[in-house]
Design a protein around this nucleic acid. Sequence first.
DNA 1: ACCTCTCTGTTAAACGATTAACAGGACGGA
DNA 2: TCCGTCCTGTTAATCGTTTAACAGAGAGGT
Lengths: 332, 332
Amino acid sequence: MRPTARQVAELANVSVATVSYVLSGRDRPVAVGTRKRVLDAARQLGYTPDQAARSLRRRRTQRVCLVQSSPGGVPSEERLARDLHEMADMHGYSVITLAVYSRARARAAADVLRSGIADGALVNVAVDELVHDLLAESAGRPPMVVVHDVDVPEGCDVVRTPEAEACAEAVEHVLEQGRRRIAFMAQRHELYRDRPVGRLLGYTTALDRHGVTDRIIVSGADDRVSAYQTAAELLASPGRPDAVFAASDRAAISVIRAARDAGLRVPGDLAVVGVGNVGEGLISNPQLSTVGPLRHDYTDVVRLLFDRLQAEEPLPAREIVRPWTFLRRGSS
Amino acid sequence: MRPTARQVAELANVSVATVSYVLSGRDRPVAVGTRKRVLDAARQLGYTPDQAARSLRRRRTQRVCLVQSSPGGVPSEERLARDLHEMADMHGYSVITLAVYSRARARAAADVLRSGIADGALVNVAVDELVHDLLAESAGRPPMVVVHDVDVPEGCDVVRTPEAEACAEAVEHVLEQGRRRIAFMAQRHELYRDRPVGRLLGYTTALDRHGVTDRIIVSGADDRVSAYQTAAELLASPGRPDAVFAASDRAAISVIRAARDAGLRVPGDLAVVGVGNVGEGLISNPQLSTVGPLRHDYTDVVRLLFDRLQAEEPLPAREIVRPWTFLRRGSS
DNA sequence: ACCTCTCTGTTAAACGATTAACAGGACGGA
DNA sequence: TCCGTCCTGTTAATCGTTTAACAGAGAGGT
C-alpha cells in the first residue's frame, strides 16, 4: 500500500494537518524543527500526496489537456505539443493527450473534459464538425483555447490563422508565372466538406480571381508516401499539371521527388509550393517555396491557456491572430 | 458549478447511492422506472461523474501514462503513441504524456507516477540514466512496461530489442562490399555514454570483427536538417567516407540528399544505410537500405500493459523480444 | 400464520488530502 | 497582573463518489 499523510504524521509525531501544511507548499508557517521531522518522515516512507484526493479537495487537477486529431503528427503540431509540455513542466502541470479522429471520439472527449480530468484544454483540431462536437454544451468548463477558425463559447480563447489568404497569394504567384494547369493536393478532411475551407479555399479563391476554371484536386497530402504515389500518377497522366500546390510541406517534398524521378525539372517543368514552412524545406533540392506562419513557436498560444489557469477571476475572452505569409524559394 | 450526483438524486427523487448504481455501470440491479428517472435527470443537468472523486474512491484513475523522450517525435514512437491511444480509447482509458528529456525531469516524472496519476505506464525512453531514475524506488507501482534493455523491478514488464546485432549485420554487409571508410551518424544520447550502446555498439562490433580500426563517428541523426548539414560537411572533407550508417532513417535520407547534391552517386560512391524501416525509405531514390523491426505495430507491447491493468491479481513479470532485421535495398 | 427469499432502495462509512476555525503557550506592554 | 498578539499546532468538516450493510415490501412455500 502506498503511504498516506496519516502514516507520515504518526512517524513524525504530528497531525496530518501539519503534514499537509509542510508538504503542500502553502505559506502556512511551521516551526523549522517540526518541518524537518515531517520532511524526514516523508522521505523515509517515500510519501507523495495522492493526486486524486488532492484534486478532489482543491478542485484543481494540475493537469492540462491537449486535444489533437492524432497523437504525434505533423511537425507544426509537434511544436505545439512541445511548447505545451515545456510550459506545463514549468508550472508543475501534467499533460493529458486526447486523440480525436471521429465524431464519436469527439463526443467522448467532450465528456472526459466535462468530468474534470484537467483544468484546461488546448484544442488543435482542424475539422469543423469535431470542434463543434467538442465545444457543444461545454459552457466554458473547463476553459479552453481553440486553435481553429470557429465561434467559441464564453470562457474560451481562440487562435485564428488566416491560411486561406496566404495560400491564395501563393497560387496567384504561380498564376502570374503564366501557369494554368495548377493542381491542389488536399488533406483528407478538406475534401469532405460542403464548401472549400482553409488551404483549399485559398486555391479556389486564387483561381477564381484569375478566371481559371480548370481545377485539379487530388488527395494525398496527409502523409509522405501517399503524396509520392499520387504525384507520380498525376505527373504521368496526359493532362499533366505545370504546378502543384500541396497542402503540406512534407507532401510537397514528395511531389518534388516524384517529379525528379519522372525526369521533370523543378521549377522549369513543374512549380511546387507547400504549406507549413517546415525546416526540411530548406534542405530539399530545389528549396521549397511554401506558405506558412511567421512565427514557429506556440508560446503565445500556450500562454493564453496558462494565463487563464493562473487567473483568480474569470478572464475576458481573448483572440490571437497568427499571420501567415508566402515564402518564395527555389521550387517555383 | 458542475452538477453533482446529489443534485441528480434530488431531481430524480432517489438517493445518491441509486444514482451511482445506475451510472457507474456496475451490475447492481435497479428497477427500470427508477433507472429511467435517474438517466433523464442526469441528461437534463448534463451530469458527468467527477473523475477525482471517483478515482479517490475506486483507487483507479482510468488513465495510463506514456513516458517519452519528447512529445511526438520519430515515426516509430508515433506509432507506439497511436497504438496506445487506440487501445486506451477501446478500454475507456485516457492517456497522459510525460516528456522526459533530462535527469531532473526523470525524477519529477517518477514522483508524478508515484502520486497515482495513472494506473500504469508505458516507458519508451532510450537513455539508460533516465530509465534508471524513473524506475528507482518505484517498487512496481504503478505497473510499467519498459521498452528498453534494462533490468526492471518486480511488477514491471520489459520489451527488449536486439538492435545492436541487427545493426552489426548491416555494417558487415557494407564491409563485405569492400568498403572500409564507414562513418556512423549517431543520435545525441549515444555519444555521451561510457560504453557504446545500441546502434553504435552494432557499428563498433562489426568493425571489430573485421579488424577495421578506422572510426568516423559524427552526430546529427536526431533531426533531418542537422543530418543534412553534418553529411554535407562530412562528404566535402578530405578523407571522405565510402559508406554512412545513420542511426535513423530520416537522417539516412538526408545523407542521400546531401550526397546527390554533392554530385556523388549512391550507392556507387557512397553506400547509405539507415535504421527504423520507415515507409519513407521506399520513396527515396534510391530506396533506402535499413535496419528495423519485423513488425511495425506495438499492439503486443500495449497489450502487455492492459493485461496487467485488467488482471485481478498481480501478474508475473513478462518479457517480449522484438526481432530486428537488415533489409538491403538500393542505397547499399 | 410464519418463515425465507428476492428485489430494490437507503444509510452511512470510507477514500486521502486540504483548510477554516480553534486553542494553548509565550511574550510584551501597560 | 492582565490583556492582546503572535506563533505554531490540532480538530474536524469537507470535496463527490462508491459500496458494504441494512431494511422493508412482496412473493411463495409449508
